[in-house]
Nucleic acid binder design. Structure first.
Length: 301
DNA sequence: AATGCGGGGAG
DNA sequence: CTCCCAGCATT
């Protein structure tokens, strides 16, 4: 079933957005990057770290990175091996490489200043549609359409009346999100933050805590009697155990925990299947996450 | 449009 | 145990 843009009266959209903004003002979590003095660079950092990683795990790493590298120029000059070590176990360490490349690009293209324009942001390494829009709204307080997995779910439930959005994010869905973005900077930013937060803590994937929801009375999914997810059959859950992703993670942990180069014999200990291990080590080198010097492997210098 | 890419905590 | 998380890049 494709996404069909719901026909919602503008007055209803506006009422939803006002209620969510008010709720967010009262109930938002005190996340460290929401402190007023947070720099645009710090916000960008928090957004990239939060891609596919829960915020609770991000917070301490984020604080440490800002101590070490308070500006893009600082990160650009850091040893990549240290960047990967400080990334710790946030997962998807390619994000750390992209972040350092992003910092270098900000220095080269934008004089070391985080851009305020979506089109400039989205050109940066590791910055896609979501993160570019999020930096516009949360770092600069400007109007943008911020759509992450939480927002997609909230829009699906409130306006489309479905349990979950379609498996893939379509152009039609994007157009709908854009169409209901408030015109004013302040209201657009509040809607972005509020709709994300609502999906993160109230209208969650597993459970909808409708008794805590400021717009439950207006929710199409609730009014329809909570129909089941119609895409449940085609939704595939990603395996992890035994995959290259798991093996790559184990190898990276060995490299991070070692002070210097490690021998292949040390890497061999983390996984029994040598063919798979070979493939994973090669792919890590290919990705720029590891280096080989004869029999010794290490993080990139 | 589909895949690959980490890791940990909640239910 | 399964599911899910403030996605991106590549095909």
């Amino acid at each position: 079933m494709k996404f069909v843009p719901p026909r919602v009266p503008p007055a209803t959209v506006s009422e939803v957005q006002v209620l969510v903004a008010d709720w967010f003002r009262r109930e938002q979590r005190p996340l460290p990057w929401r402190e007023p003095a947070t720099s645009a660079w710090a916000v960008l950092l928090s957004e990239v770290m939060s891609q596919q990683t829960p915020v609770a795990r991000v917070a301490p790493i984020w604080a440490r990175w800002l101590e070490l590298w308070p500006t893009p120029a600082d990160l650009a000059q850091a040893p990549t091996a240290q960047v990967l070590r400080e990334w710790s176990s946030l997962g998807y360490p390619r994000r750390a490489l992209r972040l350092q490349e992003c910092a270098a690009a900000i220095v080269e293209r934008h004089d070391g200043v985080v851009p305020q324009i979506y089109d400039d942001l989205v050109e940066l390494p590791g910055i896609g549609d979501y993160t570019a829009a999020a930096v516009v709204a949360f770092a600069h307080g400007r109007r943008s359409t911020v759509v992450d997995t939480n927002v997609r779910r909230v829009l699906a439930r409130v306006f489309s009346g479905t349990a979950l959005p379609p498996p893939t994010y379509s152009a039609a869905e994007r157009a709908f999100a854009r169409a209901i973005t408030p015109e004013l900077d302040e209201q657009a930013a509040a809607w972005a933050a509020g709709s994300m937060e609502l999906g993160a803590v109230v209208c969650t994937a597993r459970t909808a805590y409708c008794e805590a929801c400021p717009i439950s009375a207006l929710c199409a999914w609730r009014l329809a009697g909570f129909p089941e997810d119609e895409h449940a059959q085609v939704r595939t859950t990603q395996k992890f155990t035994g995959t290259d992703r798991q093996v790559r993670g184990k190898v990276m942990k060995v490299l991070r925990d070692a002070h210097g180069p490690v021998l292949r014999s040390q890497i061999d200990l983390v996984w029994p299947d040598q063919a798979q291990l070979d493939r994973c080590v090669a792919s890590l080198i290919e990705d720029g996450l590891a280096e080989q010097d004869g029999e010794a492997y290490s993080l990139p210098q």
